[in-house]
Structures are given as C-alpha cells and as structure tokens.
Amino acid sequence: MEQHDIHQDNQSFGVKDCTIIRRMGGVDSAFNLRELRERLRNCPIECLYYHFCETLITPTFDDPEFRNDFALWAAQKMRDLALAERLGILNPYSFDDFEDMRERIIEIIDERLSDMQYIPSVVRGDEFMFMQAATVVFDTGIELYTPQDLIKRLPEMSTSSIYYHFLEARRRTTDRVDDFTFWMQFQENKPEEIIQALAQVDFYFLSLPELKQALIDSLEGLQ
C-alpha cells in the first residue's frame, strides 16, 4: 500500500474516519490445515491484512477469544487450541513486512502439521473462507491544533477513526507509528509525556471500544 501523508502542515491535524466493505478474497476455501497452508502461500496479501487487522472493525457478536481469524478458526472449527494459541499471539504490527508474517504463519502451520498423525477436516459450513476489504477514508471535519485538542476531542471520535489513526497508520507510515505520534513529533514543544503515554498502550489485544477507552485513560490529566 502506498504511504498517505495525512498532515497538511506541521501545525494542524485533520481527523479522518474510515469505513470498510468486505469482499470475497478470490481464494478457494480451506477445509483442513494442509489446504489452509496452500491457500495462505498464494492468497493476496490483502487477505492477510483483513484477517489480522481489518477484522477488528467488522461486526461480531462479542469480543472473540483471539484477535485474528486464523486463530479463531483453529480454535472454534478445528478444535486445535495449541495451534490457535500459536497463531493468536502473532501481532501483525510487529512485522516489518506482511510477507514476513505470511512466512511466519506458514512456519507455525508446518510445525503443527509435522506433529499430526492425520489431517482432520471440517464439515461444509465450517471451512475457512478468505476475505479482503476495501477501505474508504473520509474527513470528519474535526481539526486538532494542539496535543491538548487531541486529549479533549478523543471521546467524540468514532472507533473507526481510532482504528484509522492509531492502528491502520502503522501500515501506512514508514516509521510504523500512529498518526497522532507522527504529528506531535513536529510540534515546537514536543509533548514527550503524551507521546510516551500513547506508546505504552498495548493495543493489539483490545477491541476498538476498549482501545478508545485505553487511549482516553492514558492521556487523562496530561498537559
């Protein structure tokens, strides 16, 4: 994906929002681990991005036990909790390149396959279906001029805005930081405390409403 510089100048920050629409990944479904491995090898990288990152802003009934769809499938459909745990701990934002993550997932599946006496399959309806999504980004009309504006206006931002600026930004920007931090680095009096507080939020395992609250809490009382 190309890098999008959302900052119009070094002073202000235009808050954006995003919506996604899901679509089929264009890859055959997988009924067992061996098929999953083969499909993973060839699927568009956007499928990996969807199942690890964008799945967070799609409708779900409750907070799932794992944050990526591969781990969830392993746990809920394959009933393979060991594999689910190994896949579930992967943090997509810690990889420099999603191709590296693809290799790591395949490595984990290969290890699991080598332990198996036979390869169990799921019934029709429980197969893994590869998906991807189109993201549309738009302005919210909210403009931040100082770091204090960020603290003040965070509560009125949508969870999809939080997703776009705090999570998705890490894929967009070369230094893999959130948009807020990137913006504040250019402030005349760099707000170290705020930047530090944002850096300490352990975001990957939170739902978006939880992440929004964690950001609000971490910045509370800071100047």
Binding site: H4, V136, V137, F138, D139
Partner: peptide, 18 residues
Amino acid sequence: YLTLMLSLERGITNYVLT
C-alpha cells in the same frame, strides 16, 4: 452501500480516499 459505491467509482481497490 455508500462505501461500495465509492469503491466502484474509483475502481475496486483496497484503499480509497474521498
């Protein structure tokens, strides 16, 4: 529906800026 229309209008890609 709006997201779909914007996505179609700009050519179906994975990332669309309005």
